[in-house]
Simulated scan of single mutants.
Amino acid sequence: MRHTVDYYLAPQSPWTYLGHERFAALARETGAAVRVLPMDLGKIFPISGGLPLPKRAPQRQAYRLLELRRFSEALGVPLHPEPKFFPVAGDPAARLITAVALRDGADAALRITGAVTAAVWAQERDIASMDVLGELLAECGLDAARLDESQQAEVQARYEQQTQAAIDLGVFGAPTYLVDGEMFWGQDRLDFVARRLRA
């Protein structure tokens, strides 16, 4: 049986970054069919009880930094807990990933997602910059035309549809993996995702 995974993500999320390469490797290993689905957390948080980082209680913000360091070290994944360009608008990168998924398929979308998330958290680059997004496309060997396409109405509509689908499914944070419809929230649940995909 070939499993299907709907991969709901936010490109500016450190947790998406920390889990991304492990998830992509797991999908390759198991032959899972992946749909790469960026979503707008700015629309999801207000209706799901989430808060943007600056509005969270100080003790929650402090513990988040501790956990980021902890996971970075445990996983051997380089990460700046307080990168130069963060908070950062995720929409331009989310639309770019959506455009790549539409035109080039899941493997290419996984590749550009990995590049975008690493750009924020490992390389301290500004993913709200069109210039940076163009550089990332080139570094991934993808068509430069995707940048213009990412600003077209069709892609914006798809991004909004993905966000609404996430809301309808009860998704409340990133990353979320729906394996054959079963929800797993967070990169720290990838062990459970692996069990499900290998079953």
Rank of each mutant, 00 (worst) to 15 (best):
L137T: 15
A62P: 03
P92G: 13
F71R: 13
A74P: 08
E139S: 14
D131V: 14
I97F: 00
D143M: 11
T117P: 06
I127Y: 01
G141W: 08
A145V: 15
A109P: 03
K84L: 11
E135K: 06
E149F: 03
L147F: 10
P83E: 15
P83I: 12
I47G: 11
E139D: 04
K43I: 02
R69L: 10
R56E: 06
Q152G: 06
A128K: 12
V88W: 10
G105P: 15
A144Q: 03
P81M: 10
D40A: 02
E82T: 10
A119H: 01
E82V: 07
G50V: 05
G42N: 03
E135S: 06
A94T: 00
V100S: 01
L147S: 08
K43P: 04
I44C: 09
R146D: 03
G141K: 15
K84Y: 12
L102M: 05
P38K: 02
A99V: 00
M39Q: 06
R95V: 00
D143Y: 10
D126H: 12
E149C: 05
G105R: 15
V88M: 06
L137N: 03
A119T: 01
P87Q: 08
L147N: 10
E73V: 04
K55A: 11
W121H: 11
A101I: 00
V100T: 07
I97D: 00
S72R: 11
L96K: 00
L75C: 15
F45Q: 07
G49M: 13
P78Q: 12
L41P: 02
P58V: 03
P78R: 09
L137G: 12
A62M: 02
P54A: 13
M130Q: 09
I47M: 12
I44L: 12
L51E: 03
A138I: 10
P46K: 10
E82M: 14
R70F: 12
G114K: 02
A145E: 13
A122D: 07
G105A: 13
A62T: 12
R56W: 14
A93M: 03
V100I: 05
K84E: 15
Q123A: 07
L96Y: 00
P58E: 02
G76V: 07
R95W: 00
R95S: 00
L137P: 14
A89P: 11
L65H: 05
P83A: 11
V116E: 00
F45W: 07
A118G: 15
W121F: 09
L110G: 02
D107K: 14
E124S: 06
L133T: 01
H80C: 09
Q59W: 08
D104L: 05
G105C: 15
G50Q: 14
E149R: 14
S150A: 11
L133Q: 01
A62K: 07
M39I: 06
L66Q: 13
K55F: 15
G141S: 09
L75M: 12
K55Y: 11
M130V: 09
V77D: 11
F71L: 15
L147W: 04
P58I: 03
R95L: 00
D131P: 13
M39G: 04
E149V: 04
L41K: 10
M39S: 09
G141N: 04
D91F: 01
L147P: 09
A122K: 06
Q152M: 02
A94I: 00
G105Y: 13
S129H: 10
R103Y: 10
A115S: 01
P38A: 07
E135L: 07
A118K: 08
F45I: 04
G50D: 10
